[in-house]
Computed example of a mutant assay.
Amino acid sequence: MGKLEIYKNDSFVLNDAFDQAVMNLHILKKQNGYKSFVICGCETGDGTTTVAINLAAALAGSGWNTVLIDGDMRKKNDYKRLNENASQGLSDYLMDRLLFEEIIYDTTTENLSYIPCGELIDNPVRLLCSGKMNKIREDLAKKFDFIIFDMPAINAAMDAKVMATDADATILVSSIGHTYKKSLLDAANTLKEVNANLIGTIINKTDMEQYVASHEEYDYFQNERYINKLTKKKRAKRK
């Protein structure tokens, strides 16, 4: 199999945001041994896949052997940019059509592997609850440092709820101007009902003004703002 192309994000602001996420996951791994994470939206359209891809790429960029798994077996591959050249994947393994090694794709990002969703399944919950799913979790844990599951929105299907019960932690994705407060609370409560380890929310689609307002010093070193502060101090001493 050829390598799948993973687009590179050149935005300093986005990279800064994902660096913070990587730091938090690194701490969780060091303190608690966490390595498997379910990423799911509160509602459809929250941008979960974009977040999962960037998070997995950022972890791989830190030198961790990482695998990104497309766990959405309900959505057609035509709507998934990474699956254009990867029609076989997780569902094919779970239905005993392919071996574990045959569904793992190399990518153009160093340290990052990818497992597509595979054949479209109308109701994949039974597959996600199967012994084969437990087996692949064990095999992934032996092979990778970080395992990122990109799952359908929690309020749209049961899939993420099922996966969250066995993952080390779950992260909800919400988006500015799209996710209602009620949807966020409903999603959190749904995960709480099954004792899933919800560790936080990533807020997607934040505009520049909102990001700067909450991270005033995000470009402190990039724009060498410390030089201006040092100059002001020197001037003050001269006076």
Rank of each mutant, 00 (worst) to 15 (best):
M133W: 00
V125D: 08
N155I: 06
G118H: 13
I154V: 14
L120A: 08
G177K: 12
A169W: 07
R126V: 06
F100P: 05
T109A: 05
D106M: 14
G118E: 08
G131E: 02
M95G: 10
A153M: 13
Y105L: 10
F149M: 07
D186A: 04
D122V: 04
P124W: 02
V194H: 12
L191R: 15
D186L: 08
F146T: 00
P116I: 03
G118A: 10
V173K: 10
F149P: 11
Y180M: 07
I154P: 15
D122H: 04
T201F: 03
Y180T: 07
E119H: 15
P124G: 01
E101L: 01
K143E: 00
T201E: 05
N195W: 11
D106F: 12
G177C: 07
N123L: 01
T179K: 05
T190N: 15
T107G: 06
S113G: 02
A141V: 03
N111I: 00
N134S: 00
I154G: 04
G200P: 14
A156I: 08
C129L: 07
D92H: 14
L191M: 14
D168A: 01
A167R: 06
I121T: 10
Y93A: 03
S175I: 02
E193T: 13
I199D: 07
T190C: 09
I147K: 02
E101F: 06
I203H: 11
S130M: 02
K142Q: 00
A167V: 06
L120Q: 15
A188T: 14
I147N: 00
V194P: 14
E138K: 03
K182E: 07
F149T: 09
M163Y: 07
L112W: 02
A196E: 12
M151Y: 13
A160L: 09
L172P: 12
N123Y: 05
D139Q: 03
L94E: 02
P152Q: 05
A153I: 13
L191Q: 14
L99P: 02
E101S: 09
H178A: 03
T109K: 11
